[in-house]
Amino acid sequence: MHSICVYCGSSAGAAPLYAQAARALASEMVSDNIALVYGGGNVGLMGIIADEVLRLGGEATGVIPRALLDKEVGHLGLTRLHIVKDMHERKAMMADLSDGFIAMPGGIGTLEELFEVFTWSQLGLHDKPIGLLNVGGFYDGLISFMQHIVAERFLRPEQAALLLTEATPAALVERFKSYQPDHLNKWTLPAGSIYP
């Protein structure tokens, strides 16, 4: 585990605990010599986690589309900042540079990035760990909805289990370090074995 892509808000959110969790995640990653890959912004949780990684002596790589460089206030003090043409190139590069993916609290963009890599995992396009950092129960509703999707048989329990969930950065990073992919994807099980 050399690098983790962190998806998070360009806002700091309503509660101080989100920023605290961003700094705690930065600390866990740096102490384990894990580099940060993220969206390249200098505002909100994006800026907080990048600044903390850098302050602690770690590496932070940002990937930002040229059109968002000003809107998200591109972070010019990173170890590396890749300026790309669009969101598709951004997400592809972030995925290529990362050994795993963590979604912190964030908005629609964070969810879109999370579910794209989750879909890629379900389809067997990668076998990297994906996690929700469920700070203060932020993702409780999403976790409940995932259980509903499984109950309604649009997702197998084994596929839902690909999304690791922990309330603290330490616990989630530890699970990433010991992660063993099972190479299960949407198309590999024999007919008739899709659901229990």
Rank of each mutant, 00 (worst) to 15 (best):
P157F: 03
M87A: 03
E28C: 11
V30A: 09
M93Y: 02
G100L: 00
R90I: 01
P190Q: 08
L172K: 00
D127W: 02
L69D: 12
N185V: 01
R153I: 01
L155P: 04
E152T: 14
G77R: 15
D32M: 01
T110N: 13
R55F: 00
Y38A: 13
V150I: 08
K71V: 06
A22W: 15
D51V: 03
F115R: 13
G106L: 01
I4S: 01
L36R: 02
F101K: 07
P181M: 04
N185D: 10
E174K: 12
G77P: 13
S121L: 12
L162I: 11
L68Q: 02
T61Q: 08
I48M: 10
D86I: 06
L81A: 15
V53R: 07
A161S: 13
K91R: 07
P105L: 07
A160T: 07
K186A: 15
D140E: 15
R156T: 09
V6R: 09
A92I: 03
A92E: 09
M1D: 10
S98R: 00
E28T: 04
L189N: 10
S31E: 08
L111N: 11
L114K: 05
T110V: 12
P65E: 06
H126D: 06
L56K: 07
G131R: 05
A167R: 11
D99P: 04
D127Y: 07
L189D: 13
R90K: 09
D99V: 06
Y179H: 05
W120E: 14
G100A: 00
T165K: 12
A50M: 08
A26K: 10
T188I: 15
G13Y: 13
K85A: 12
D96T: 09
I83R: 11
P196C: 08
L123N: 08
R156L: 09
Y179R: 01
D96P: 01
E28M: 06
L142F: 07
S10K: 06
T188H: 15
E158F: 10
L56Q: 12
D51L: 03
G41V: 01
N185E: 02
G74N: 10
H2P: 13
D51T: 03
E152S: 14
G124H: 08
I143G: 08
A60C: 09
T165Q: 12
I48T: 14
G106S: 07
G39Q: 14
A171Q: 01
R175E: 04
D140Y: 11
V73Q: 05
Y139H: 15
M94C: 00
P190A: 09
I64S: 14
G40C: 14
K186I: 15
P16Y: 06
E72T: 10
G77V: 13
I48A: 09
D140P: 14
E89G: 04
D70Y: 07
R153Q: 11
S3D: 08
I149K: 00
G124E: 11
R55N: 07
A170M: 11
I108A: 08
L68F: 02
M94R: 00
L155Q: 03
V37H: 02
I102H: 02
M104H: 11
V150P: 05
E116V: 12
C5S: 11
I64L: 12
A19F: 10
V30C: 11
G44Y: 04
R175P: 01
V150Y: 01
F118P: 07
P65G: 05
